[in-house]
C-alpha cells in the first residue's frame, strides 16, 4: 500500500505527504500528490471545487484510508505513519486536530463542555479510567480544573467567554466556526487542519479569523494546514500554498509565486473562460504554460 524506502521528511518538516493517491471506485480523487507542511507555518491548500482538498484532509486524519502513498508526521512526540493509523488514534497519539467543512459541534452540549470533551484522553487518565473519578478523588478534581482553565483560555481567544454555559447549537454561525477551532486547539495538537474555516463568514468575522490563525501560529508555534476558497484569507496569512486541481497538484510555493502561476489562474478562471479572453492573452497564457509545467515537477518549494 505505502511507498517503499525510508521517510524523506527533512528537519523542520512536520508533515510530509508523499505520492498520496485516493481512488473511489472509478474516480481518482487524488492523483499522486506530494507536499510538505512545516512547524510554525500556515500551509494553505487551495483549488476549485472538487479538486480533492477535503479528501486530502480525510486521508490525513484517518477518515479515509489512502489507496497508496505515505503520510509522515514528525513531531516532538515521535514519528507517525498516519496512513496506517485509525482516525481516533491519529488525534490521540499523533496529535493532529481538525475542523469540518460543515461544522460538527456537539450541539446539545454547552460551549464549555465541548471544550472539555476535547480533553477527553487526558481526563480519562486522570479519572483513573472512571474508577477514581467515581468516588470524587482529588487527583481528578484538579485535572478537571486544569481542563476548565485551558478551556477558559481558548474561550477568551475566540471571544466566547460570555457564552460558555450556552448550548453550542444555539450560537450564531460565525461563533460556531470559532468554537470548533477552539475545541480543536483544546486537544493541544501539533498540527491543526482547518477545512474552510472562513466559509460563510462576513468580512469582519473573516478578519478576526485571520488574527486568530496568526495568533495560533505565532504564539503556539504549531503547524496549521488550511483549506480555503477565500483568496484574501489565503494570500494574507499563508506562508506556503499548495494548489490542487482535479486531484493533481498544479502549483506549490510562496503566495506571491502561486498568485502569478498561469496554471493556477487557468484553473480558477476555468476552461470556458478561455474563449472569452482576447486572442493575444490566450496565446501568451499558452506559451507560458509549457515552462510552468516543467517547473512544477521539480517540486515548487525550494
Amino acid at each position: 500500500m505505502s511507498v517503499d524506502g525510508p521517510p524523506t521528511a527533512t528537519a523542520g518538516t512536520l508533515l510530509a505527504v508523499e505520492h498520496l493517491t485516493m481512488r473511489f471506485g472509478g474516480l481518482l480523487a487524488i492523483d499522486d500528490v506530494s507536499f510538505d507542511a512545516r512547524d510554525g507555518e500556515i500551509t494553505a491548500i487551495i483549488g476549485p471545487n472538487g479538486a480533492g482538498k477535503t479528501t486530502v484532509f480525510n486521508c490525513l486524519t484517518g477518515f479515509y484510508k489512502p489507496t497508496s502513498g505515505r503520510l509522515t508526521l514528525q513531531a516532538g512526540s515521535g514519528l507517525f505513519l498516519l496512513e496506517r493509523m485509525e482516525d481516533f488514534r491519529i488525534a490521540q497519539q499523533a496529535k493532529v486536530a481538525r475542523t469540518f467543512q460543515n461544522i460538527r459541534l456537539f450541539p446539545a452540549m454547552s460551549v464549555l463542555e465541548n471544550l472539555v470533551v476535547a480533553q477527553h484522553n487526558k481526563l480519562m487518565r486522570a479519572s483513573g479510567y472512571t474508577f477514581a473519578g467515581l468516588f470524587g478523588l482529588g487527583v481528578y478534581r484538579h485535572a478537571e480544573q486544569d481542563a476548565v482553565e485551558l478551556a477558559r483560555y481558548w474561550l477568551e481567544q475566540v471571544h466566547l467567554t460570555a457564552r460558555a454555559d450556552d448550548n453550542a447549537g444555539d450560537l450564531p454561525y460565525g461563533d460556531q466556526r470559532r468554537l470548533e477551532i477552539a475545541r480543536a486547539m483544546c486537544t493541544e495538537p501539533v498540527l491543526l487542519c482547518l477545512d474552510e474555516p472562513a466559509a460563510g463568514l462576513n468580512h469582519r468575522e473573516s478578519a478576526e479569523l485571520n488574527e486568530l490563525l496568526l495568533f495560533i501560529r505565532n504564539q503556539h508555534r504549531i503547524g496549521v494546514l488550511l483549506i480555503e476558497h477565500d483568496m484574501s484569507v489565503v494570500m494574507g496569512i499563508s506562508d506556503h500554498i499548495v494548489v490542487l486541481d482535479y486531484g493533481r497538484k498544479i502549483a506549490d510555493g510562496e503566495p506571491a509565486a502561486v498568485r502569478n502561476d498561469p496554471n493556477v489562474i487557468r484553473a480558477y478562471l476555468g476552461e470556458e473562460e478561455d474563449e472569452a479572453l482576447p486572442p493575444e492573452v490566450a496565446r501568451d497564457l499558452a506559451l507560458e504554460q509549457g515552462p510552468a509545467d516543467g517547473g512544477d515537477d521539480a517540486g515548487g518549494r525550494a
Binding site: F63, I90, Q92, A97, F100, L105, F106, A108, E113, H120
Partner: peptide, 17 residues
C-alpha cells in the same frame, strides 16, 4: 461526557481522539 458527545456527533468525537 464522551457518551453524550458520541450521541451528538460520532465523527467529531473521532476527530478529538
Amino acid at each position: 461526557r464522551a457518551w453524550e458527545a458520541l450521541r451528538e456527533d460520532e465523527i467529531a468525537c473521532r476527530s478529538l481522539g
